[in-house]
Write a protein that binds this DNA or RNA. Structure first.
Lengths: 165, 165
DNA sequence: TTATCTGCAAAAATTTTGCCGACGG
DNA sequence: CCGTCGGCAAAATTTTTGCAGATAA
């Protein structure tokens, strides 16, 4: 996990301002709410707005969208799609990873997977000259925790993330 | 490619109505605009509305959303995310496939890929009891056609699909 | 000082809901 | 005839834009 300060410093060197909002947003995406509470995973724009308010940083929704655009343009964030058609964003951790989404508790874990996708891409590239830029891969299912809970008392069925089979 | 008629017949047997709109929507998702023109790939709700109008079927946007919901509930459609945060839908061809998206010409190809993902899922399941329900995998890049065009005169740069690295 | 950033208001785009009338089977 | 379906209007969400004022460096 890179340092939030390092990222901010780089931005400052590139001539951008280190406003309260920007520092808070970078902090939230890097480490979750620094005073605990908040989520560290992918967030929607409205969620980010709430997280900022919870942190005591009062901002306008317009600013939130603009800050997301700004960080996306600097490739510090990436958009994540978790099957429900809602745009989420997360810190693009230098590298590349995928998600394991529990459709019961909505917990999201990140992991890496290199081998077979690269091989596939190499094959398609040589076959038909397709230049790969990026890919997205997300898995959906029920985590061990939730499986156990539902085997016990499990009555409350949570909203399940639809689509993207 | 299953027959549009077979799907409609199944719906009718299950007690649903075969309205003009429904027939047209199923037709569009299965074969693209039957009189050529239209796209056969994933469509957004507004795009579906336009396609229907182009086909001479005049419908309200509400109806389009409801018809998509209906077909999603019957698992005839699935939601597709192509990295731009827009919800698209496509016919769930009995089976499962992935997409190869050209960010230049926006052409979308479908393909299957079984092996390595299944292996990965089996491994995670045995390691931590995660029950996999589904996954989504999309590749983004520049197709052979577009690479050639841009090597020649290529001046017009098209909007590129952002995010989801 | 000055370019970056912010808030506000307004609009655009997407999606959902309720109600009543229309229509398929 | 009955229950499904469709249209219309209105609202809720999410996202974008213009402009004028505030601020970091």
């Amino acid at each position: 996990m890179p340092d939030s300060a390092a990222i901010l410093e780089k931005l400052r060197k590139d001539g951008f301002r280190l406003t309260q909002t920007r520092k808070a947003v970078v902090g939230l995406f890097l480490t979750g709410a620094s005073d605990s509470s908040g989520p560290a995973g992918p967030m929607t724009a409205p969620e980010l707005l709430l997280a900022l308010e919870a942190l005591g940083v009062s901002v306008n929704k317009t600013t939130v969208y603009r800050e997301i655009d700004f960080l996306m343009a600097r490739k510090l964030l990436r958009e994540v799609h978790l099957g429900d058609g809602v745009r989420r964003y997360e810190y693009l951790e230098g590298g590349h990873h995928h998600h394991l989404v529990c459709v019961e508790c909505n917990n999201i874990e990140c992991f890496e997977m290199t081998g077979c996708l690269k091989e596939f891409e190499a094959q398609i590239t040589s076959e038909r000259n397709f230049r790969f830029i990026k890919h997205s891969l997300e898995f959906f299912g029920v985590c061990g925790q939730c499986t156990v809970s539902s085997e016990l008392g499990g009555s409350e069925v949570k909203e399940s993330v639809e689509s993207t089979l």
